[in-house]
Nucleic acid binder design. Structure first.
Length: 820
DNA sequence: GAGCACTGC
């Protein structure tokens, strides 16, 4: 295959060049073209000093004095250094060396990074245990003591501390690490820390980033100086596909990725291959296709390295092909990190999970493999998959985009940014010089946006706005964001907070209510929290709702079939039958409760999970969240109540569903007669029939009610009204976690609030769209869910209009992305 | 007929 051109400039070369450009503007900025040893390898050497195996210092070491001087002199600094330069582990130690009494906090976007950095630094400082001078705090786990001076925390933890103490008086130095990832947490933190720094000029603030677009942070912090640390481990050569545009690539990247893997396997030297794709289904398809092509290879004839004369170069005799994505079962994730059999080239098809960080595992004295992601993180450290020399980058990523108009998340395949492409390529140069094959042309690369759109500009901001309000930021629109989110996102969040009763004014300038303060205390989505408070305070079913709240807060508990099994309709039907044992006739919320109860009744058994195709990891996480929620309710002195009849022990679903209505009444949907399609009531009822906000909602295929809606089920009966947890738009708009509502009285008390919110929205839009009127609550009453109610049958024109509404929502989201 | 990745008193 020769459609890949060699790009004259290596990735490292380009970086050095860009760095020098910036150096002219910022006198403190340093650059270098040195390539150092892989610092991850270095860190595994169990010596107190941070040195590589050959005794070479970490890239950051020569700058120790200058850094310490800059930090103590300036107090506010942006530090750039690529992953592995040593900035996260060394800088806090330098500060402690200079000021032995300093109290330092370092934020990380991921739990696992907080843990592994704390462990590494404790080891380097010669500490016997983590939790003495060096510790970490993440949800469910605080490994600190009164002696702890340096703590690594997730950004959510520091946010919570800021709610209680806006001056952060517990710290002298705050370090925000991985700022380039631009998570919502980091972005909010930066805005709040800017305020905090004004109140406390003595607070030292360091922003650390791995990408070069740091001028943005410098500008944000009043043009503060930037300090650059050198250190890309090894050069990576970049190969581009000749004249391949992204539009053409989007429909063919799986096949092209497989072709490229085969090309590398046949012609390139030894080394494993990491391929970036967008989703689990493509990954399974690519794995199957690659295995099939491998089986057809005649190694003697087709594979250059079969006849290698180099004694160090083992004969290549096969491929070991793996997939890697988050919803994979733990056991299958862990296979990837085991070395391939001798003579076999390892190929890993992965989602973006591999771009940011790869969580592998140290083979410890306990001889225990650890899980990736949630839970079970003992002995984990973050390293790359060993031996990756080649990276194949498809140029796309799957991203969630929230549309504030329809309150809908869309999961869309989007071109990556140049910064993301650089990070992906960097995965090839961790243990030796590598090569990255981009499936798109150099020209297509130039057309990519330089940086990934910050998450805050494409997410629902309900939690964020709630947190800001709790910190007395009443005019959220005027908050000092690094990049301001679209005003529609803020308006939508304010509307939802009003609907939940968390703020007292739908226009958003209002203050947090008592309920709002309570929601802030609960570490779950405000929707879930509202249902829990209603269950505890009003409907006497807290013990059931803590389970449902916890289950709604974790990833899906259902294990999906993979590969060949997924294509087998008989096997699929079997799985569905197996799941039915948990299904509740009222819908998914009580089904989640049933799953959890069954798991508890089987002593939290892992093997029982495997037999029943359930994710043990998710259930364990749910149990932790449940306990946390229970302890908060305890602290509030809320009595434990149950909807179970003490004599018959029969569970009454009505109080549970009514408590859910308290929160989710805006997510009420009405089924169309003789069609398995619903309309969202809140949007529907106040608008004219031809409004483009009308759109059809389908039921998620994993829902307990899916079969009943599609085919009818005498056990469930006729479904007319449902409430849902959320909507995810993929090829259609799917409601997830759906339960039946069969009494109008359950939602009626909350409808006036809906009217008020809509009236406020209409008043805001009034000037530009005076034509559109919100109907009165009285007119709306005709929509009451009585058995006689029948919506007009949808004629074709109307149906087309609704489909167009979905397309419009999607385009709005994409347009926002482009403009944003 | 499903479907990126994170996170929280």
């Amino acid at each position: 295959m020769d459609r890949h051109d060699r790009d004259g400039q290596t990735d490292a070369g380009r970086h050095a060049h860009r760095g020098q450009e910036s150096a002219r503007e910022r006198p403190r900025l340093r650059t270098t073209s040195n390539h150092s040893m892989d610092p991850v390898v270095a860190s595994r050497v169990p010596t107190p000093s941070a040195a590589t195996t050959t005794g070479q210092p970490l890239p950051i070491e020569p700058y120790r004095k200058e850094l310490v001087d800059a930090i103590s002199e300036l107090g506010l600094l942006v530090i750039v250094g690529e992953t592995g330069s040593g900035k996260t582990t060394q800088i806090p130690q330098y500060i402690l060396g200079h000021d032995p009494n300093a109290r330092i906090v370092v934020t990380q976007p991921r739990r696992i990074a907080a843990i592994s950095n704390a462990k590494r630094v404790a080891e380097e400082m010669g500490e016997r245990n983590v939790g003495n001078r060096v510790g970490y705090v993440i949800r469910f786990e605080a490994v600190v003591s009164p002696a702890t001076q340096l703590r690594y925390v997730t950004d959510g933890v520091l946010l919570r501390e800021l709610v209680d103490d806006g001056a952060l008086s517990a710290y002298d130095v705050v370090i925000v690490d991985e700022a380039h990832e631009r998570t919502v947490g980091t972005d909010i933190l930066l805005g709040l820390l800017k305020q905090c720094k004004r109140k406390r000029p003595d607070l030292k603030l360091l922003i650390m980033s791995a990408t070069l677009d740091v001028e943005k942070y410098s500008d944000f912090f009043d043009s503060c100086p930037i300090f650059q640390i050198p250190g890309r481990p090894y050069p990576v050569e970049i190969m581009y596909a000749r004249s391949m545009r992204l539009a053409a690539l989007q429909t063919s990247f799986v096949d092209r990725a497989v072709d490229t893997v085969l090309h590398i396997h046949r012609h390139e030297r030894q080394g494993d291959i990491l391929v970036f794709l967008t989703g689990s289904q493509e990954i399974e398809r690519a794995v199957t296709a690659t295995q099939k092509l491998d089986a057809q290879l005649d190694y003697r004839r087709d594979v250059a390295h079969y006849h290698s004369k180099d004694p160090d170069d083992r004969r290549v005799v096969g491929m070991s092909v793996f997939g890697l994505y988050a919803s994979l079962e733990t056991g299958q994730q862990r296979e990837i990190f085991e070395p391939a059999r001798p003579g076999y080239r390892k190929v890993v098809f992965a989602t973006n999970i591999a771009q940011v960080c790869l969580y592998a595992i140290r083979w410890t004295t306990t001889r225990r493999w650890c899980e990736i992601g949630h839970g079970g993180h003992d002995d984990q450290t973050s390293i790359t998959i060993p031996g990756i020399v080649f990276v194949v980058d498809c140029g796309f990523v799957k991203q969630k985009l929230y549309d504030p108009v329809t309150h809908m998340d869309a999961l869309v395949v989007t071109p990556i940014s140049q910064a993301a492409a650089t990070q992906r390529a960097g995965r090839a140069g961790r243990t030796e010089p590598g090569k990255a094959y981009r499936l798109y042309s150099h020209e297509a690369f130039s057309d990519l946006p330089p940086n990934t759109e910050p998450e805050i500009q494409r997410s629902a901001l309900l939690d964020t706005v709630l947190a800001l309000k709790a910190m007395n930021v009443h005019n959220v629109q005027n908050f000092d964001f690094v990049d301001a989110p679209n005003p529609d996102l803020l308006t939508a969040a304010l509307r939802d907070l009003f609907l939940l009763g968390a703020i007292d004014d739908p226009k958003g300038l209002g203050h947090l209510t008592l309920l709002g303060r309570q929601l802030m205390q609960l570490p779950v989505s405000p929707w879930v929290g509202r249902a829990l408070i209603a269950a505890a305070a009003e409907f006497k079913c807290s013990s059931e709702m803590v389970v449902i709240a916890a289950m709604l807060s974790v990833e899906s508990v259902w294990v999906e079939l993979r590969g060949k099994a997924a294509a087998d309709s008989k096997r699929q039907a079997q799985v569905h039958e197996q799941r039915r044992q948990f299904f509740d006739r009222t819908g998914d919320h009580l089904t989640l409760y049933n799953v959890y109860s069954a798991w508890r009744n089987h002593d939290n058994s892992r093997s029982w999970c495997r037999e029943n195709l359930l994710h043990h990891r998710a259930l364990e996480q749910a149990q932790k969240i449940k306990r946390q929620l229970e302890s908060i309710l305890d602290k509030w002195s809320v009595p434990d109540t149950s909807a179970r009849d003490p004599t018959t022990s029969r569970l009454d679903p009505v109080p549970i569903l009514r408590a859910l209505c308290t929160a989710y009444y805006p997510n009420l949907a009405k089924k169309q007669v003789s069609r398995p399609v619903f309309y969202q009531y809140a949007v529907h009822h106040g608008k004219r029939a031809d409004s483009d906000a009308l759109m059809s909602l389908a039921i998620h295929p994993t829902s307990a009610l899916a079969a009943a809606v599609e085919k009818g089920d005498p056990r469930v009966g006729e479904i007319e009204w449902v409430l849902y947890h959320d909507i995810i738009y993929t090829t259609r708009a799917n409601m997830r976690f759906v339960s039946r509502i069969w009494r109008w009285e359950w939602v009626e008390p909350y409808v006036p609030r809906l009217d008020r919110a809509m009236a406020a929205a209409a008043a805001a839009e009034g000037a530009e769209d005076g034509d559109e009127k919100v109907e009165s609550a009285a007119a709306m009453q005709s929509e009451k869910p009585t058995p006689s109610t029948s919506a007009g049958s949808a004629d074709d024109a109307q149906k087309a209009k609704r489909e167009a509404a979905i397309t419009a929502a999607r385009e709005r989201a994409l347009k926002r992305r482009r403009v944003g």
